[in-house]
């Protein structure tokens, strides 16, 4: 074999290796999709789409069993909305502060703290929530502390690093010429920042929020540890009561579920999957609008 063909073979091998690695991700997504839909869709079909999605009672052990996941859909939405309520304003203000107001030494400390926050495993967040937040909410707001409110605060904290770091780079990416244009009209630093620079960065800020929401919806462990997990349809004013999210529903019961019950849990996963897909679609729509 000549030197040339050896080199050629090496190149080919490398190409195949790269292609395989790249397709691994696609194959993984594909497999998850197929698995979820093959196992989940028949269950949804059997229960009935309407019964499944709008049923308000989840009682797999009753005879006949009831598989309504509306309480979990609503639970997920509440916790998500709560996380947005806490995480988004704080995250955006923190990002503005870091990009436009922060003295350098403080910046370094903040950046470090935020990177750390991003790296903390969710079970540790959950533990923090159980030990600190649950008693805090119990003593200051009432209820037993395992509640929608607690989960919202905790998730709000968990999405902060995502929102802060992506928003901060979006704000930094706005050219200083625009800022100077505002200042040259007699605008103060604050006004130029909040009325010109921040709006100019809005698609990046929106992207950070959506990614944060994606994280909030998919989060399982920490939420499960502080949310109370009752599969009961809650009204908005019951934010001090517990609720169960879609993710918690799966993880709580999958261990000892068989037959229809198991299929209904996988179907819960399907709904969650569709949720996340919608959020991602929203994200890429925004990105496209921005022309990135």
């Amino acid at each position: 074999m000549g030197k040339r063909s050896l080199a050629f073979n090496k190149e080919l091998a490398a190409k195949i290796l790269f292609a395989l690695s790249a397709s691994a991700a696609i194959i993984a997504v594909g497999l998850i999709c197929v698995f979820l839909f093959v196992q989940g869709l028949p269950a949804i079909w059997n229960i009935g789409v309407i019964n499944f999605l709008t049923g308000t009672v989840w009682q797999p052990t009753w005879n006949p069993p009831l598989y309504g996941i509306l309480p979990m859909i609503v639970g997920s939405l509440y916790v998500m909305a709560g996380a947005i309520l806490f995480g988004v304003p704080i995250g955006i203000f923190a990002a503005v502060f870091m990009a436009k107001f922060c003295p350098r030494p403080i910046y370094k400390v903040l950046k470090l703290a935020i990177n750390l926050l991003a790296g903390i495993p969710s079970v540790v967040y959950g533990y923090f929530g159980m030990v600190i937040l649950v008693p805090f909410v119990r003593e200051n707001f009432g209820g037993n502390g395992n509640s929608i409110l607690t989960a919202s605060i905790l998730l709000g904290m968990m999405i902060l690093p995502t929102i802060i770091s992506i928003s901060e780079s979006a704000i930094r990416a706005i050219s200083s010429e625009i800022y100077e244009g505002a200042v040259a009209l007699g605008a103060s630093h604050e006004r130029a920042t909040f009325r010109v620079v921040l709006p100019a960065a809005k698609s990046g800020v929106m992207a950070s929020i959506i990614l944060g929401i994606g994280r909030a919806v998919g989060e399982t462990m920490a939420v499960r540890m502080v949310a109370g997990n009752q599969a009961i349809l809650r009204m908005p004013h019951e934010f001090l009561s517990g609720a169960r999210t879609l993710t918690a529903n799966v993880v709580l019961e999958l261990g000892d579920a068989y037959g229809d019950h198991r299929a209904a849990l996988i179907a819960t996963g399907v709904v969650l999957f569709v949720f996340i897909m919608l959020i991602n679609a929203l994200f890429s729509m925004l990105k496209k609008k921005d022309g990135v």
């Binding site: 010429e177 625009i178 244009g181 009209l185 007699g186």
Partner: peptide
């Protein structure tokens, strides 16, 4: 400025920004 630096907003809001500021 040397390079035109309109704000990424409507034409109206570009002009109204200064007076609003004041």
């Amino acid at each position: 400025f040397q390079k035109p630096n309109p704000f990424p907003m409507s034409i109206f809001d570009n002009i109204a920004y200064g007076p609003r500021t004041h």
